[in-house]
Design a protein around this nucleic acid. Structure first.
Lengths: 307, 307
DNA sequence: ACTGAGTCATAAGCCCAGTTTATGTCGCCA
DNA sequence: TGGCGACATAAACTGGGCTTATGACTCAGT
């Protein structure tokens, strides 16, 4: 009531402006099947429910999404676009789902995975989706922790397969490199360095206060090693997420895993600063107890992760 | 009842296993603020509502997410992981939101954008989010179509700024290259080419039946030009999405924009096949009517898109 | 100790979005 | 012209999520 201007923001957060997951799924089904009734059947609801749901989604968005005809329904142009955006939301939700299922401590798990935080956050959900696609019955449980914790679980036979980032591997474990990760320097688009063309020298990086993870973290170790000394922290934060948030907010340049900032880079919330002579690469490895070469589900997962 | 085995899939689609957007937003707020009540305040609901919502989310996922104490609430380890996955869902929803708002035909728009499909699908939501971050009041409207339609809108003064992919620019329009896009060859992980080390030669690509967009599409034109002849279609489909789906399903190798398959590559639903001597690059350009150099909101958006 | 301000939990009642069942309308095809 | 499929409409039910009101607990300051 006492509200200002065009109430397009204030009025309820995201959840009120974006259709819920069920509606988005329904839209995808309509797009795929070309029929409201068919989509309804697939989702196990009745046709009027689907009809009304699509209708209310159109009302909510203020855009016609599907062309109804007595012979079926096709997406409008706008509908096609919306559907593509919806697909990305649903895919993120699928990753969430498969991750959350693995997180639940299930006794009956046939595959117990232990992974470092970065890998569990950014890579594992994708792998688990792929695994589920080809072996739908494999129940997976996930335990996330640092490298030491992963090693511990494997050696105690509380996990079948582990994933760690970093240079060294604990004794008693075999490993194979499955991917490479680069640490990169990023800033908010407004920062001076964002417009910079000339690559950054190590010396320059070493004397600039940076937004960093806490001392002892994997990324910090790699950075210190590469700089041949200690990086100067502007702030120290205890999670990748917090570092990202600070960088996006314009607090300064940050050093982060490429994996962590893919989204932010493509949305231009962050900009990558070119690096000259510094190599901030690190290996991502799958690990398992020496001798216990992965078999069965563990082997399946492992083979998915190798490029 | 008559259901088989561990009912972890059957039982309701995604929407029933994944908390709704409101709950995920709430979780992010709790993570950021360290307090249920604080998060509730921020979202404009009462503390008991937040409390109960988090609780039911924990019940739904079967995992404890937050440690409550009389001094506040902190995420558990599992909660931190879940929150990170939740953030990705919410970010996708934000992109959906800003896109959908622009799609709505608003007379009062201060910035009217026309964009080709690929750009509207994959890049524009990110740009609009960035734009909203720095100019919250700019109302944007979006019109998606092919290059010709974009040109038409601009010349009819029905759009202020356009974005197109492709080589040529219609006469009467000025343009600037804002990014580059590569077409790449992808297959399902099971395909022979997925394990291939030796890069693919143009000659080889030319004789292999491929999953392609329809003739006349931008990607098809670039491909034909690069092969110095015509690509052989295995199937022709009318949307990027359909091509992706076919490729993921293992129908064969496909040629697609790098932009379209980022997600699929990182989730290993698709694998990139290395190319030897073929260059499938194309420019992405911002365009505007000759002489009407972008000013105001259009200039703001344009400057966001340039790397 | 006591009080006050912060936290979260519990209980009871309200409300609306989304659902189902039942029916109506329209177009196409045999 | 009947019949089938697809979508729309109407009315009644249900439940999840909300609010208000209250209670229990911890900490800090007096």
């Amino acid at each position: 009531m006492t509200q200002s201007a065009e109430g397009q923001f204030r009025a309820g957060s995201l959840a009120h402006r974006v259709p819920d997951l069920g509606a988005l799924e329904l839209l995808l089904a309509v797009a795929r099947l070309g029929s409201l009734g068919g989509a309804a059947r697939e989702l196990g609801i009745t046709q009027p429910a689907a009809s009304s749901r699509i209708r209310s989604m159109e009302r909510q968005l203020g855009v016609a999404l599907v062309d109804r005809s007595p012979r079926g329904s096709r997406l409008t142009d706008a509908g096609a676009l919306v559907t593509d955006w919806a697909r990305r939301v649903v895919e993120a939700a699928e990753a969430f789902d498969v991750g959350a299922q693995a997180l639940r401590d299930r006794r009956d798990s046939r595959l117990r995975v232990a992974a470092s935080m970065t890998i569990a956050e950014y890579l594992l959900p994708g792998w688990l989706l792929a695994l589920r696609a080809q072996r739908p019955d494999t129940a997976v449980s996930l335990l996330a922790g640092n490298s030491a914790a992963v090693a511990e679980r494997l050696l105690a036979d509380e996990a079948d397969l582990g994933f760690v980032e970093g240079v060294s591997v604990a004794s008693g474990l075999d490993s194979v490199v499955i991917a490479h990760d680069n640490l990169i320097v990023v800033t908010a688009p407004g920062h001076v360095w964002a417009r910079r063309r000339r690559p950054l020298e190590a010396s320059e990086l070493a004397v600039t206060p940076l937004i960093l993870r806490e001392k002892g973290s994997g990324t910090r170790q790699v950075l210190d090693a590469a700089l041949g000394g200690l990086a100067r922290p502007l702030i120290e934060l205890s999670s990748t997420t917090a570092v990202k948030a600070a960088a996006v907010g314009g607090a300064g340049p940050a050093v982060l895993s490429e994996l962590a900032v893919g989204e932010e880079l493509s949305m231009r919330r962050l900009v990558r600063v070119p690096l000259a002579d510094v190599s901030l690469a690190r290996d991502l490895r799958a690990v398992w107890p020496t001798g216990h070469r992965p078999v069965g589900p563990a082997r399946d997962l492992l083979s998915l992760t190798r490029g």
